[in-house]
Write a protein that binds this DNA or RNA. Structure first.
Lengths: 339, 339
DNA sequence: CACCTCCATGTAATCGGTTACATTTCTATC
DNA sequence: GATAGAAATGTAACCGATTACATGGAGGTG
């Protein structure tokens, strides 16, 4: 592996001159530039970033922490992050925690130890206080997900409570009285907020949420299938199932269909996120859309701001959500007479 | 940001002693260890990795290049990589190229410049020769995908030609004579190999592959839908559609169904990869399974070998594939009389 | 020709660690 | 109590770059 010294020797100049040619920071005579470039070419030299970043104390790299990569929702958020990152000359690296707290700790150490300029959490298995502490030392943004018990960290999310509240109200307006809610349990802060939104909407309509309709099997397709089986074992089926992710909602519809219960006709089903499968499944799924790209873009903008001005105050950004009405919810009045 | 010097001063020892405490490389008196640890605690010190790796010339980090993260296939391969990486103390970082050659070049520079110990390509937009050149300088493994025109680089794949050949033979054995093949065009080397497998199987049965049945719309759900529309515009529909990815096969089935053509009854459809949606779609999709986790594991093993012994010879590993027969292919003899 | 200026380049300090080697301190032995 | 050897710690070189400052030579001016 050639170093700057080898190049300098080869070209018959000092390392400083080579560095100047590499960075274009200072005037160098044309012939010298050519000699250096010839040496670089000949030795197939590539500057070692470590030396440079050690000196400059910035890496132009940021880290995004995801729960798992097999999720279309996150892939769109990441796209948004990458957009803004690219415009600003940053490289984006992704890591998945796969529920491995130890590994995640390793990754955040990389930020602490200045191997990366900042970090965006789209999820975390770590306790809020640890993230809080990290944020006091390094640029940190939390996006899409909320982490209980943190303040002083910039976040970009939708209003999960309101989104679920709106969804539940839509179901209630269409005659549903018993609404099951599928979540991923306590790991996801957003799940809890959404649960509360459903409960509050029900309460406002004078309804309640019996505990047997609160399922936290998880939010994958398979989890949806499991949840549906549990619902089928109940003495009476609920009027509606609201799942905190589209994949789970589709799992529910899939299993119900195996028992000849058709979503949109015999029962109402709603999802969350508006993945493309929601549009194409049969029946197309009514769901809550999040502005995924925009979440990513804003998160990266906040992170860059924090990198450039470490002392700037944290911001909490709420982006708008949207109900996407398709065919999986049984409408009370199809003619739209007074809905 | 505290440095090792600050800690040394605080603890009243030299930087060397602090370093020894941090790395446990040498004997240090118990009381000194405690004093240093107290200083570290007090200053909230975290060693800067750059200094260390600069000296040691290894980062214990590797990079995985993916086309996109919204693909379950890759997520399983990555899981396999992460398994082996973790056992060996490596951290795994992911980057997606999103068809951005320039960005990808940036990432491979990180490896060249020793910011990372090695790189696994699950895909690449770069010309084969560039990867070839990189592999001569740094540890590189190509997995799951093949890149045309490279030698001297370790690879882990299935036999894509044979897998497609087997799939086509299965279709032919079930009476299909006109088989459409959906691929992603020239970017993916595996697509081409699979195309050749189909063609060779057809040729062996005395059949041919008319050009209008060779579609390279891409391999997403939407691409499958587009391809189906093109097939529907043909004077006669093919007997079978073989897509080089499950998502595309399902897109095909989806659009055909909109025209009342039912896969498994009116037409045969096969996919590739055996994603979980293949199992749960209606009808469940007949497909070719790849040992995704194993591909990832083997790839990481090869990479570690290459990192430890840079001069070891490259290996080309072929892992077994498997036909997964479900209901999307119309079987000639349902009783199994002489299949 | 002396002197000043400017340009190109070299020298050496520096970033934050690690580590070979040197030095000091302690312990054991006679 | 002198001395050898081991243990603990310090000193300084080093990893590969960047960059402030020093230096030397060319060209211009009076």
């Amino acid at each position: 592996m050639a170093t700057i010294k080898d190049v300098a020797k080869e070209a018959g100049v000092s390392v400083a001159t080579v560095s100047r040619v590499l960075n274009g920071t200072d005037r160098v005579r044309e012939e010298t530039v050519e000699a250096v470039q010839a040496a670089i070419e000949k030795l197939n030299y590539h500057p070692n970033f470590l030396g440079r970043t050690l000196r400059r104390l910035e890496t132009m790299k940021i880290l995004v922490v995801l729960p798992t990569i097999s999720n279309q929702f996150y892939s769109r958020v990441v796209r948004g992050i990458q957009d803004v990152a690219k415009q600003n000359g940053y490289h984006v690296m992704l890591v998945t925690t796969e529920n491995d707290t130890e590994a995640e700790t390793g990754y955040i150490e990389m930020v602490r130890r200045r191997l990366l300029d900042g970090i965006i959490f789209l999820f975390s298995t770590l306790p809020g206080e640890q993230i809080q502490r990290l944020a006091e030392e390094c640029p940190v943004v939390v996006a899409s997900e909320t982490i209980p018990g943190i303040s002083g960290v910039s976040t970009v999310t939708i209003d999960n409570w309101k989104a679920a509240y709106d969804a539940a109200q839509f179901l209630i307006a269409n005659g549903c009285k018993r609404i099951a809610y599928l979540s991923a349990g306590a790991i996801y802060g957003s799940s809890a907020a959404r649960g509360k939104g459903v409960k509050d909407a029900l309460a406002e309509a004078g309804l309640e949420m019996p505990p047997e309709l609160l399922l936290d099997e998880g939010l994958t397709f398979k989890a949806g299938k499991r949840a549906a089986l549990r619902l089928l074992n109940l003495p009476v089926l609920p009027d509606a199932v609201f799942a905190a992710a589209d994949a789970a909602a589709i799992g529910v519809m899939h299993t119900l269909l195996e028992h000849d219960i058709v979503a949109g006709k015999d029962i109402s089903v709603m999802g969350f996120d508006n993945n493309s499968i929601a549009e194409y499944y049969d029946p197309p799924l009514t769901t809550v859309a999040q502005p995924q790209m925009e979440i990513g873009r804003k998160a990266m903008e906040l992170l860059i701001k924090k990198i450039k001005e470490p002392d700037s105050a944290p911001e909490k950004i709420l982006l708008p959500h949207q109900l996407v009405i398709r065919d999986s919810v049984k409408l009370l009045r199809k003619d739209g007479s007074s809905l």
